[in-house]
Design a binder for these strands. Structure first.
Lengths: 212, 212
DNA sequence: GAGTAATATATTGTGCACAGAATTCATAGT
DNA sequence: ACTATGAATTCTGTGCACAATATATTACTC
């Protein structure tokens, strides 16, 4: 058994994000610290530390005396988050080394074409999508930017389960990823950046209808 | 006496950011929780909560078993932060209501021309600059974006005291602010966005030499 | 019966204590 | 003198307890 040698607060944070992605927590509901701590088998102290981290990422809101609650979801906020991530990923891509991007282009193309089956679990699909974006941005030397993107994306997890079982857009998503990869192979960095932004905007529009 | 009715962790966070801006903490040094808590007159619990928040904003780093330390500064990271804020503020400005921007244009112009005396305290200059940027972005309806910008700027506080007493660039900063405001009054939103990005890039270059 | 005051309950915010890890210091051995 | 080993110390990570605040319930008046 590989014993975990990391602060509990980080493990708790990841566990909560996992459950959030599964839709275990309803948006807008209060967090009962004692109950949740007992369920996780930890004390309130590291749990609260994880909650504070998540509040900083926009997953939770905190009110004086009322503790934490899962931030409500809305079309408006989803649009806001997509716009932010689009801008940040565009920045990361446009400041990456073109030579490196050309090099990983084929791999990106392969991953895009190798999109998982629509009947696959939501988790699998998400992981595959994340993998593609991570590879795409792996050439950026702006570490702060990559951290920030990760953080903002954590805030988008709240919307993950709302879009489960939505197969139709998968092909379009794959097609758009291919387009980005092809432009990179062709050495057109500006075009690829534009295509990436379009991917986010289009993906956003596709998903918006599923949000209350 | 106005009794504070907010969580201690938030008050502590602000106090630490204030001291950081004054250069009270050397970059790269460890935080001694017990000592700092005693100095602030609070217990370690809310202090740690504040430290965790600041770590999420990039002000601090945390290592297992070694606690927190003030993140080291570097030209590379300063450049990264400027690029990020430039992109985020550009996004905020470009998605603002043009009519509103035209309306506040004159006020922005007035503020830009009314730049404080170079001999003024660093604090005063910073506050004035922040005020201008806040007003500029006040037309954005993307609340998440505004929060994010605030958070990233908090991470830049570590560089504030390194740039104290640097009068020469003040005029150029003012001139560039004027240019943004004039373009907004003229109704050229795209141009203003571009000018704002230039302001960040130029400001970055101006300051880079002062960083080790 | 509705509205308000008073009480009880539940839950957070903060302080505190202890165990365990990391660092420092001392000591012994080569 | 230098390295290595081990003890002592410092400090973090986590659990726990209490006080303050918010919420729910009851009692009471009109």
């Amino acid at each position: 058994m590989a014993i975990e040698r990391r602060p509990l607060r980080e493990q708790i944070r990841e566990e909560l994000l996992l459950r959030l992605g599964r839709g275990d927590f309803a948006a807008g509901t209060d967090v009962n610290e004692a109950a949740l701590a007992a369920e996780l088998g930890v004390s309130r102290t590291p749990l609260r530390e994880a909650l504070i981290t998540l509040a900083g990422e926009g997953v939770l809101e905190s009110n004086q005396g009322r503790g934490f609650r899962f931030a409500p979801v809305s079309r408006k906020e989803f649009r806001e988050l997509c716009e932010i991530v689009a801008a940040l990923e565009s920045l990361a891509l446009s400041t990456s080394d073109p030579a490196y991007l050309k090099e990983i282009g084929p791999e990106l193309l392969r991953l895009a074409n190798d999109f998982p089956d629509p009947v696959a679990e939501q988790q699998v699909i998400e992981r595959h999508d994340d993998e593609w974006h991570d590879l795409l941005l792996s050439g950026s030397s702006n570490e702060r930017l990559l951290d920030l993107i990760t953080s903002v994306k954590a805030g988008m997890r709240r919307y993950a389960h709302l879009l489960a079982g939505y197969d139709a857009p998968l092909e379009r998503e794959a097609a758009e990823h291919c387009r980005v990869a092809e432009l990179l192979v062709a050495g057109d960095l500006a075009g690829a950046t534009e295509a990436l932004r379009d991917n986010w905007v289009n993906g956003m529009e596709r998903m918006l209808s599923r949000i209350p």
